[in-house]
Simulated assay, not measured.
Amino acid sequence: MIRQAIEKRKKHLIGKLLSNGIYKKNDLHLFELTLTELEEEFKRILKVQN
């Protein structure tokens, strides 16, 4: 059950990052990143936009 919640959150963040033109971080595709890495990248994008 927790795993499903994590995967759902990851998919949500990946969708948000893709819509902002982010497809990779360094040489890794977004789906290869951990939830924490995705959240950090999303926070960075929000910071840049504001």
Rank of each mutant, 00 (worst) to 15 (best):
M1V: 09
M1T: 13
M1I: 10
M1R: 12
R3M: 11
R3T: 12
R3Q: 15
R3I: 12
Q4A: 15
Q4L: 13
A5Q: 15
A5D: 11
A5N: 10
I6M: 09
E7G: 04
E7F: 04
E7H: 04
E7T: 06
K8T: 09
K8M: 10
K8D: 08
R9E: 08
K10P: 01
K10V: 02
K10I: 00
K11V: 06
K11G: 07
K11P: 04
K11N: 11
H12G: 08
H12I: 12
L13T: 02
L13G: 03
I14G: 02
I14P: 00
I14L: 02
G15S: 03
G15R: 02
G15P: 00
G15Q: 01
L17E: 00
L18I: 06
S19C: 11
N20M: 13
N20L: 11
N20H: 15
G21T: 01
G21I: 01
G21D: 00
I22P: 01
I22D: 02
Y23S: 12
Y23P: 05
Y23H: 15
Y23Q: 11
K24C: 05
K24Q: 07
K24W: 03
K24R: 10
K24G: 06
K24E: 06
K24T: 08
K24S: 08
K25G: 06
N26R: 10
N26H: 08
D27P: 05
D27G: 05
L28V: 05
L28D: 05
L28R: 06
H29A: 14
H29R: 14
H29L: 15
L30T: 00
L30I: 02
L30D: 00
F31D: 13
E32R: 02
E32Q: 05
E32T: 03
E32V: 03
E32P: 04
L33I: 00
L33F: 00
L33C: 00
L33R: 01
T34S: 08
L35A: 05
L35V: 03
L35K: 03
T36N: 13
L38W: 00
E39Q: 05
E39S: 04
E40M: 08
E40W: 05
E40V: 06
E41Y: 04
E41G: 04
K43W: 07
K43T: 05
R44Y: 10
I45V: 14
I45T: 07
I45S: 10
L46Y: 09
L46K: 14
K47E: 11
K47H: 12
Q49H: 10
Q49S: 14
N50E: 12
